[in-house]
Design a protein around this nucleic acid. Sequence first.
DNA 1: AGGAAGAACCATAACTGATA
DNA 2: TATCAGTTATGGTTCTTCCT
Length: 261
Amino acid sequence: MKRKTYPSDLTRKQFERLELFLPAGRPLGRPRSVDLYEVVCAILYVLQNGCTWRGLPHDFPKWQTVYGYFRRFEHDGTWAAINRVLVRKTRCASGRSAEPSAAILDAQSVRCSPQAGPRGRDAAKRLIGRKRHVLVDALGLLLFVLVTSANVQDHNGGRFVLNAARHRFPRIELVWVDRGYQAGLVRWVKALCGWRIEVVRPVPGARGFQVLPRRWVVERSLAWLTRSRRLSRDFEGRPQTTETWCYLANIRLMLRRLDPC
DNA sequence: AGGAAGAACCATAACTGATA
DNA sequence: TATCAGTTATGGTTCTTCCT
């Protein structure tokens, strides 16, 4: 008996692209009996609808099983690896070279719901919650994300992100940041990895809201993330889980772009 | 005000079942 | 029997809601 579809489901074709990178079952022992398509659809259901794991509809595999795979693939780096591969594919499909040479750094603070785990006050944004430090490419695809409590300064999170990206995306040579990242970060980047780093500034004299080149790309990416209800707030106990959700949101975006419904 | 109950998440252990 | 997949149970933490 086939269940009815949900809006968050992947098409079979989209899943086939994903399936290539999911670890196969082990050769010994009990064979895998759940359909990973159902597991992935269930995970995306939680992501899109923002429901709790226990609130997962009953026509999906048991929530513990779904959650188990979610955590397992987080722990062994599967989701992050899939994100990196799909970024390269999506860039190729858009006529760019697979490896990004430029990136944009930004941070977003999000309110926490009443869960356990680290949180802090972002004095500038006047909220208590978590901060997402993201690095995106020129297309706005998520390259790397770090989630901290919101009281972590942008430039401290930024350092960590750039340091991590250095190994994962070795061809990056130019990073755009906004004015919130102080001169210390600029010096640090130059000394550490020799990247060019440009601070995007509003045009002097202009009034009111301005669309800044390069800035709107990353703002759009952050808006994409919060369109997924699970990411509209931070419901997670562990910051790392939020990072995983961010990668999954990006993965779904790229799958849809590569294989439109 | 203060306590009990429950929701929600995380982590882990113990258990059952299938296969070579 | 060893090994792995999946299920169930349990304890910890933090916060909300309800009751006295």
